[in-house]
């Protein structure tokens, strides 16, 4: 297998250029998909026969929860690549992902709580899914705190990468928690093998929100990694040709 593309992508000037070109191609479809998905979810989708209009929180809760897991997986993978192959750009990707992932994890917990109050009768329950998601938030916060506690960037990269890699064990625990333990939280309705249990009028806006959120993450990541690259490569001569 030819790995030239991988090594090229790991080059900061190349990635800086590619990320700049990708940004509008991710941000504009993300905005359109999110606007369409939210409109479909709030206005077009019919009320749920059991949960009435409270179910509409799913259009922001499920994409936030999806991003919380995806961001951590990306962060841990990038951290592992940085540790194993000593690629600085991979550490930049991990560092840029952490605040995005943390904010969406907090959002997933908050919107879940706002949905749980009318449906379960409680804002919070020490349930396996909720508790493991809370641990995920602490892992993100721990990762960011650990990074900022070092003055030396190389040491910060390595120490925080170790934490990210160890913490990835929590990701499958969150996903399978509803099957492994008795949980108030419902099981998978969209992302399960076979057909979804949701009707198309409810499912399509949800899929639009999920895809829009994923593209939004891509756009945010491009912008944040570009900023990280500029800070890390402050002495590099290639900057003069690229910073405009």
């Amino acid at each position: 297998m030819n790995w030239t593309w991988f090594h090229r992508l790991a080059s900061p000037p190349h990635f800086y250029r590619i990320a700049g070109q990708l940004l509008p191609w991710l941000a504009i479809p993300a905005a359109l998909l999110l606007a369409g998905g939210i409109f479909g979810g709030l206005v077009l989708a019919p009320p749920d026969y059991q949960q009435s209009d409270a179910f509409r929180i799913i259009y922001i809760h499920a994409p936030s929860a999806w991003l919380s897991l995806m961001c951590y997986t990306v962060m841990a993978t990038a951290a592992a690549v940085g540790l194993i192959w000593r690629i600085k750009l991979a550490h930049a990707v991990a560092a840029a992902t952490a605040p995005i992932g943390a904010s969406f994890t907090a959002l997933a917990l908050a919107t879940g709580s706002l949905w749980g109050r009318p449906m379960w009768g409680t804002w919070w329950e020490w349930d396996a899914r909720l508790t493991s998601e809370l641990i995920l938030l602490f892992l993100y916060l721990g990762y960011m705190a650990l990074r900022s506690s070092f003055d030396d960037l190389t040491r910060a990269d390595r120490a925080s990468a170790l934490l990210a890699v160890v913490g990835v064990v929590n990701v499958p625990i969150i996903h399978f928690s509803v099957y492994w333990w008795n949980s108030l939280h419902q099981g998978a309705t969209v992302m399960k093998l076979g057909r979804s249990e949701m009707p198309a009028s409810m499912l399509v806006p949800l899929l639009m929100c999920l895809l829009g959120s994923t593209l939004l993450y891509g756009a945010l990541l491009c912008a944040r990694v570009r900023a990280e690259v500029l800070e890390r490569e402050r002495q590099a001569s290639w900057l003069s040709g690229l910073v405009k």
Partner: peptide
């Protein structure tokens, strides 16, 4: 319950976009 959830979502999206733009 629904509107505060959407308000939080909008705030988090706006905050992320603003902070990424500001960092860059």
């Amino acid at each position: 319950f629904v509107w505060p959830a959407y308000a939080l979502w909008a705030a988090v999206i706006a905050g992320n976009v603003w902070s990424a733009w500001r960092a860059l």
